[in-house]
Amino acid sequence: MRNPDVVVVGAGVIGAACAEALSAAGLRVTVLDRGPLGAGTSAAGEGNVLVSDKGPGPELDLALASLRRWPDLLADLGADVEWDAKGGLVVATGAVEPLLDLAAAQRSAGVDARPLTPAEAFDLEPHLTRAVVAAVHYPQDAQVQPVLVTKALLAAVRRRGGVLRPGVRALGVRLAHGAVAAVRTADGDVPCGAAVIACGPWSGEVSAAFGAPVSVLPRRGVVLVTAALPPGTVRHKVYDADYVGAVASGDADLQVSTVVEATAGGTVLIGSSRERVGFDASPRVEVPRALARRAVGLFPVLRDVPVLRSYGGFRPYAPDHLPVIGADPRRPGLWHATGHEGAGIGLAAATGRLLAELVTGADPHVDPRPFRVDRPGVCA
């Protein structure tokens, strides 16, 4: 068997998207993951594909590029990944100006953001609290089943002759003339011409082992899952206006903002929480209580609906809230694709394409400079 051109370390949605795009560009790819494929952060998400939660700037540019890419990519994959172009609704029950100002700025950047009166919001979501005083509708927002889309991307890699190796821990790199020549694993070296670290919240740990540390930290989040409700009870992804502030915050303390959306099976997902507690997965009863209380405030119809379970995960968090995508100048042949926090599903399509363009020397379809590895605060 011929050696791979590129080894991708990490089989979550970002690693899978990078591997898919690299294999589509004609490169031989091997994907390594220390655990099962797609079983880390990607399996603990809601599957958000959002533009509504991002202000103008590089991340929104990447999100819009990804949104444009997803339809063609999913058609190429030929798999049912429960894509739902449901749209988003952001509501305010207090100050209106921040929500409307953000929507105006987003429109200037190419987002379809439509201000609504409370009555118009209730037409879209009849079960919303009547405390809503303003809303913005985002028709471009969508949802996908994260495990299904990750598996579909990896299946495409395998069809093109790529190799998937779950249960293989990457330990570092072997260099030749200062450049990456192989990825060292517990099962032996994997010779290659390039390596991509796409390990989500574990990227800080793995990059340090590879001799090129980046400042990517875990940020824990919890999601509640309710019993199935009648179709149409919750029709869009609905969240309160303080969600955007929570996403952009670097505060280590627990933050809770209300996010409510239905799944294809009729269950309702309730989020979102954010806290920096390292990799501590200990259950904390105050988190689901806070999520449930705020969700009922947004949708009173949920008051007597049973919560079947909760699940949590760790999101990869960069200090400046931007993904890390590109070559590492400290290690020729080493690349990074990480730091997407809770936006990895939505940003995956454009991230994979951008990474493949940079590796192959093609013209990048979005400006890669804001995501460079050697920007301030990222190189550890």
Rank of each mutant, 00 (worst) to 15 (best):
L154M: 04
V91N: 02
G313L: 03
I345P: 06
A281L: 12
G55C: 10
D5P: 09
G167R: 07
Q143P: 00
T338C: 12
G15T: 04
G265W: 04
L148R: 13
G47M: 08
V222I: 13
G88V: 07
F279Y: 12
R159D: 12
V378W: 03
G326R: 04
P201A: 15
D141R: 12
W70T: 08
K86R: 15
P306E: 09
P126H: 08
R293M: 09
V111M: 07
L229Y: 08
P201T: 13
P283Y: 10
L358R: 03
P231K: 07
R220K: 15
V296C: 00
A318Q: 01
G266P: 12
A121D: 01
A17C: 06
V136N: 05
P115S: 08
V366S: 08
L73S: 09
E46T: 15
D53V: 11
S257I: 00
P126R: 03
V238L: 11
C199V: 09
D72E: 14
Y138K: 07
P118F: 11
G313P: 05
V136P: 01
R68V: 13
L153V: 03
T117I: 11
P283D: 08
R289T: 14
G40D: 08
R114V: 15
V222Q: 13
A327E: 12
G344N: 07
V260N: 03
D320G: 07
V225I: 12
V260H: 04
K151T: 13
V7D: 00
G221W: 02
E46L: 14
R114K: 03
L217S: 13
R331C: 11
G12I: 12
G47C: 05
G346K: 03
F314A: 08
G78Y: 08
P4C: 04
R375Q: 10
G333R: 01
F299W: 05
